[in-house]
Design a protein around this nucleic acid. Structure first.
Lengths: 150, 150
DNA sequence: ACTTGTTAGTTACAAAATCAACTATTATCC
DNA sequence: GGATAATAGTTGATTTTGTAACTAACAAGT
């Protein structure tokens, strides 16, 4: 009748709450890479993601990037415009469906992608190096599952 | 001399890049809980975090919350103001150092915290249920390490 | 052919985050 | 004690995001 702070096993700890923990780990582990694409290339998060999608998977449409990366179309639209202004990518209207445009990295865009990818690889290795090979593999697997990235 | 796409083991895959993977998992796993504190309580991410810090660890200052949660002081300041307007917390100026103010949940604030904490517990269990007990324990451990929450 | 619905992408406006500058108070050091 | 620096917290200007409405093109049903 008085208090429920007693009946309930008060074992909740914010530090262990998965959404919180995942966010903290994501933020912390993004900082160093962010410094590179932001300070050195003046890019925003959505911009390097778009760049990487095109660099990693080849030319595709804005819609496809949005679906793959779960980024809203307005964010994609603005990122694409900025990357286009910097001549990192080009648009080509589809002949068969004139609503769609194929996005492709230009030569400078590819070279920026390669540079950033190299840094990403190194940084990923550094993070992965905190754990054993098996642990890291399991971590990636679990994260993919949580992210619905099968 | 021609291309380095050949010399380099081109095994980089964005889907496995830890900062990306962590962000995707964090976003995805926060959605459902976000719906609750946002749609049902009209709270922002920083607001529930402040609420939970006070609810979980007891009264403390804005500075302390910021340090613990790695949230910038302007975000804290605005979140605190909003929570105060809703009468979820009270401020008490310290007598010994009049720059500082002790933040504490009010009774309604505590009750909202308890409700949200219950939902958080359930949701955490649901996420954890995707894996074995050992796997989940390892995941939390690794995330704490990545988040520097040792 | 022609209304109705969908889809790709953009734009406009509101909400929120970021960054710098500010006030008020306490600490340091000469 | 008084100048200088440091700290807690707030405010304002700018940037970025989120939401809704919009255009243009295609699809489907009648």
């Amino acid at each position: 009748m008085t208090e429920d702070s007693f009946d309930k096993k008060d074992d909740f700890n914010l530090r262990d709450f998965l959404p919180y923990l995942l966010n903290r780990a994501a933020e912390e582990s993004s900082l160093e890479f962010q410094k590179v694409y932001k300070d050195r290339y003046g890019m925003l998060r959505t911009e390097w993601r778009v760049l990487f999608h095109l660099g990693n998977y080849g030319g595709m449409t804005a819609k496809e990037i949005g679906d793959r990366a779960k980024i809203h179309k307005t964010k994609i639209s603005r990122a694409v415009r900025k990357l286009e202004h910097r001549r990192y990518l080009s648009r080509t209207r589809s002949e068969t469906d004139r609503r769609v445009e194929l996005l492709q990295l230009t030569t400078p865009g590819q070279s920026v992608y390669h540079e950033l990818r190299g840094i990403a690889e190194q940084y990923d290795a550094k993070l992965a190096g905190k754990f054993s090979k098996d642990e890291t593999a399991l971590l990636r697997k679990m994260l993919r599952r949580l992210a619905h990235m099968g």
